[in-house]
């Protein structure tokens, strides 16, 4: 007899003789427009090249959707294959937004070339990408983007973004689900953070090891090491490693398998 016990005192309001309301607040099961497709990306620059890499696993919860779903794209190519592109973009997070963002930036870079008769500089493209992201400030593209190319001097350029368009040029950056695993490793091995020159002094006089551009072979190996490490400890990372290397000669794509477990 719960309803007897739960009777509220009768109110003065005109209406039914019973007090229990037949109306309740609207039940709202709202549609959530995002999902996380996992994975990680990583970019490192050198003196005359930039590398952008990402694993190729796509997940939904604990399910693996696909073992080959690329996250690194050529931007501003002449055809579907991306031939003739001079900018790279990696997107990690919500894959559908990532794909939409890539398509938009690709169209922008192509239109720039048609309208100005010259390829868009990486610096300009970086600023434009920030604007595109910020335009959706209140319904963001849920992605961490990294843009890579060669700057006006021909040195490697890398720009990293947050989902709403804050960006910064950097030497190296990891993004995605295993970013927190990869980033401190990169600090140590690329920027030589916490490394000192042995015997250079005592206490504060001890000289930090200077970070400089690394040769391509070293960088490639660091990328492989970073990803094989991430694969060991993060379930959303694995299956394949897609590396794109941009040099003055164009873009080279390297695919190597990663563990599938």
């Amino acid at each position: 007899m719960t309803s007897l016990v739960n009777q509220q005192p009768h109110s003065e309001a005109i209406g039914y003789s019973f007090s229990q309301s037949t109306h309740a607040p609207n039940k709202q099961h709202s549609f959530y427009p995002y999902t996380d497709n996992g994975g990680s990306t990583l970019g490192i620059t050198g003196a005359d090249f930039a590398i952008l890499a990402g694993d190729t696993r796509s997940v939904a919860g604990y399910n693996i959707n696909s073992r080959y779903a690329p996250k690194v794209f050529k931007i501003g190519g002449d055809d579907e294959t991306g031939e003739g592109a001079h900018i790279l973009l990696s997107v990690v997070g919500f894959a559908a937004d990532g794909h939409a963002l890539k398509e938009r930036l690709d169209a922008v870079v192509k239109m720039y070339k048609y309208q100005h008769g010259k390829p868009m500089s990486v610096r300009a493209c970086a600023q434009r990408l920030s604007t595109i992201l910020y335009q959706k400030r209140f319904f963001p593209y849920y992605v961490h983007a990294i843009l890579a190319g060669l700057d006006e001097e021909g040195t490697g350029a890398l720009y990293s973004y947050d989902p709403v368009g804050s960006y910064e040029r950097e030497q190296c950056r990891a993004a995605g689900s295993a970013a927190s695993l990869i980033m401190p490793f990169l600090d140590n091995q690329v920027n030589f953070k916490n490394q000192y020159i042995p015997g250079s002094g005592e206490g504060h006089a001890l000289e930090p090891k200077k970070a400089g551009p690394l040769p391509r072979s070293t960088v490639e190996q660091l990328v492989r090491d970073a990803f094989t490490s991430a694969v060991e400890r993060h379930i959303e990372v694995g299956d394949g490693l897609q590396m794109m290397v941009i040099t003055a000669n164009g873009i080279e794509e390297i695919y190597t398998p990663l563990k599938q477990d």
Binding site: S180, L181, P184, F185, N188, Q189, S229, A230, E232, R233
Partner: peptide
């Protein structure tokens, strides 16, 4: 711990 997993696994 996440960061340590990354550095330890790498070094």
């Amino acid at each position: 711990s996440e960061q340590l997993f990354g550095t330890c696994e790498g070094l």
